[in-house]
Design a protein around this nucleic acid. Structure first.
Lengths: 194, 194
DNA sequence: CGTCTATTTGAATGTACTCAAAAGCGGTGG
DNA sequence: CCACCGCTTTTGAGTACATTCAAATAGACG
């Protein structure tokens, strides 16, 4: 608890007044394990910053298969930005996988903050910019790397994900089946021995 | 020529003064067929808005295979945002496929515009936000759809791409080989007859 | 008309998936 | 402390989607 303001201050310097305005436009909320922050077909009304806990963002395809789009842990933002910005039904679900505390900024408050505190618009431009660059990297990797190499890269870049989320979710995040990830790990273990 | 200001004004309303500042911070530039706007390993110094022409953004993997990350036609922005924001060497190449006229905003000018004309920061937040949502959609589709369905969706959503870019580039953009796309098209043609 | 590039065709191969079943693991209650 | 339950991971066989390589064909341009 209270990772939020320090996080914001990593990007910009807020005056006491600005900080007060920001404080007035956020809400703290707690979720239990299994609860949904965003639900498919409902409008995503806020963007959520994780103070503690962990969540997964997933999507159900037309055959009913789950695909994990993103993980969220402490100091990550989660939500369905597509739904948030157009205030139309969400494609994604955001579900808590343990007791999770978040800071939420509702759509209307976010618009007001953009208007009254231009620095906040700066922060969100930066956050989205980074998210966009990551998304592009992921597209490129899904193109040009095998499942095995994508797994190795995830291990290297986000070991926390591999540690904190069950293997079948890691598989889904990588775009492969849990069985295939199991095979890959088996093979990697054999190689490590020799 | 002169799609740029109307495009900006679709997002926001600039005062004459602001418009003048914007004008003072952009440059027009022409490229010939085959020339590069951004080159791998060089720092991307500006973001480019296409007035006319067409470009492809691609990436060379470690085996030397090309992967097309994006197409650009009139009224699209192109560049390597990852490189631009960190002023570090680019991963991507942006190459003109015909005579192409662009409006360019250099890194330093962009920072100045963000500082002096907050509305410009708004525009870029919106542009990047939309780009991010599109990138996420692409990730989801590459997960959950077959090559055939991805091709059909591209035909539906961006027919201009399929018309204006050669088939082997479309294949690369979809993440498949040109031979396989040829097969898919062949099969679709057969189905259309019966 | 010839040359260069883009597209098509086909056969063999590979990467990853599906389905079914077994094994492992953690918590709960007897 | 052990037995049982539910959930996650592993194993294996058969299959599907997409690739590779080689060669033929079609199109575009001078």
């Amino acid at each position: 608890m209270d990772r939020f303001l320090p996080y914001i201050n990593k990007h910009i310097q807020l005056t006491p007044t600005e900080e007060a305005i920001l404080q007035a436009n956020i809400k703290y909320k707690n979720y239990l394990k299994g609860q949904y922050i965003v639900q498919n077909d409902e409008i995503c009304r806020c963007h959520s910053f994780i103070e503690s806990g962990k969540v997964r963002t997933f999507y159900l395809d037309k055959n009913g298969n789950e695909h994990i789009v993103a993980f969220g842990i402490e100091e990550w933002w989660v939500g369905d930005i597509g739904s948030l910005i157009t205030q139309s039904p969400a494609d994604f679900n955001v579900q808590c996988l343990e007791k999770t505390q978040v800071v939420q900024i509702y759509y209307e408050n976010l618009q007001r903050l953009y208007r009254d505190v231009p620095k906040i618009e700066r922060v969100f431009r930066l956050i989205i910019q980074n998210a966009y660059v990551s998304a592009q990297k992921r597209i490129v990797r899904n193109f040009s790397l095998t499942a095995r190499d994508r797994y190795l890269l995830l291990l290297e870049e986000y070991p926390a994900f591999v540690q904190r989320f069950p293997q079948y979710m890691i598989a889904s995040y990588l775009g492969i089946t849990k069985e295939f990830l199991s095979q890959i790990r088996n093979q990697l273990a054999k190689e490590a021995k020799s």
